[in-house]
Amino acid sequence: MNELQNKVAIITGAGSGIGRAAALLFAQQGAKVVVSDIQEEHGKAVVGEIEKAGGTALFVRADSGKPEDHQALVAQTLDKWGALHIAVNNAGIGGPLAPLAEYPLDGWQKVIDINLSGVFWGMRYQIPAMKEGGSIVNIASILGQAGTKFSPAYVAAKHGVVGLTKAAALEVAEKGIRINSVGPGYIKTPLLEVLDEATLQALVGMHPIGRLGTSEEVAELILWLASDRSSFVTGSYYPIDGGYLAQ
Rank of each mutant, 00 (worst) to 15 (best):
133 G>L: 04
135 S>H: 02
137 V>C: 05
137 V>A: 02
137 V>R: 00
138 N>V: 10
138 N>I: 11
139 I>S: 04
140 A>R: 01
140 A>E: 04
140 A>W: 00
141 S>D: 07
142 I>S: 02
143 L>E: 06
143 L>Y: 15
144 G>R: 01
145 Q>R: 15
146 A>H: 12
146 A>S: 15
147 G>S: 15
147 G>E: 09
148 T>W: 10
149 K>M: 13
150 F>W: 10
150 F>D: 14
150 F>S: 13
150 F>C: 08
151 S>I: 14
152 P>N: 08
152 P>K: 03
153 A>E: 01
154 Y>T: 09
154 Y>K: 06
154 Y>P: 03
156 A>P: 03
158 K>C: 06
160 G>A: 10
160 G>R: 04
161 V>P: 00
161 V>R: 00
161 V>T: 07
162 V>G: 05
162 V>E: 04
163 G>Q: 05
164 L>E: 02
165 T>K: 02
165 T>N: 05
165 T>Y: 01
166 K>S: 09
166 K>T: 09
167 A>I: 10
167 A>N: 13
168 A>Y: 00
170 L>V: 14
171 E>V: 05
171 E>H: 09
171 E>T: 06
172 V>N: 01
173 A>K: 09
173 A>N: 05
173 A>E: 07
173 A>G: 06
174 E>H: 12
174 E>I: 07
174 E>P: 03
174 E>L: 12
175 K>P: 04
175 K>Y: 05
176 G>M: 03
177 I>F: 00
177 I>R: 00
179 I>R: 00
183 G>N: 09
183 G>S: 12
183 G>V: 06
184 P>Y: 03
184 P>K: 06
185 G>A: 11
186 Y>F: 15
186 Y>A: 11
186 Y>M: 11
186 Y>D: 13
186 Y>T: 13
188 K>G: 04
189 T>W: 01
190 P>N: 13
190 P>A: 13
191 L>S: 09
192 L>Q: 08
192 L>Y: 12
193 E>F: 10
194 V>T: 14
194 V>K: 14
195 L>N: 10
196 D>L: 13
196 D>T: 14
198 A>L: 11
199 T>D: 14
199 T>E: 15
199 T>L: 13
201 Q>N: 15
201 Q>Y: 11
201 Q>E: 15
202 A>S: 15
203 L>A: 10
204 V>S: 06
205 G>K: 11
205 G>R: 10
205 G>A: 15
206 M>R: 12
206 M>K: 13
206 M>D: 09
206 M>H: 09
207 H>I: 10
207 H>M: 10
207 H>G: 11
208 P>F: 09
208 P>A: 14
209 I>T: 13
212 L>F: 11
212 L>Y: 08
212 L>G: 07
213 G>Y: 00
213 G>W: 01
214 T>D: 12
214 T>A: 14
214 T>Y: 08
215 S>C: 12
216 E>I: 08
216 E>T: 12
216 E>R: 08
218 V>W: 01
218 V>C: 05
219 A>R: 02
221 L>A: 07
222 I>Q: 01
222 I>V: 14
224 W>R: 02
224 W>N: 04
227 S>I: 06
228 D>V: 06
228 D>C: 08
231 S>C: 10
232 F>E: 04
233 V>M: 07
233 V>A: 08
233 V>D: 02
233 V>W: 02
236 S>A: 14
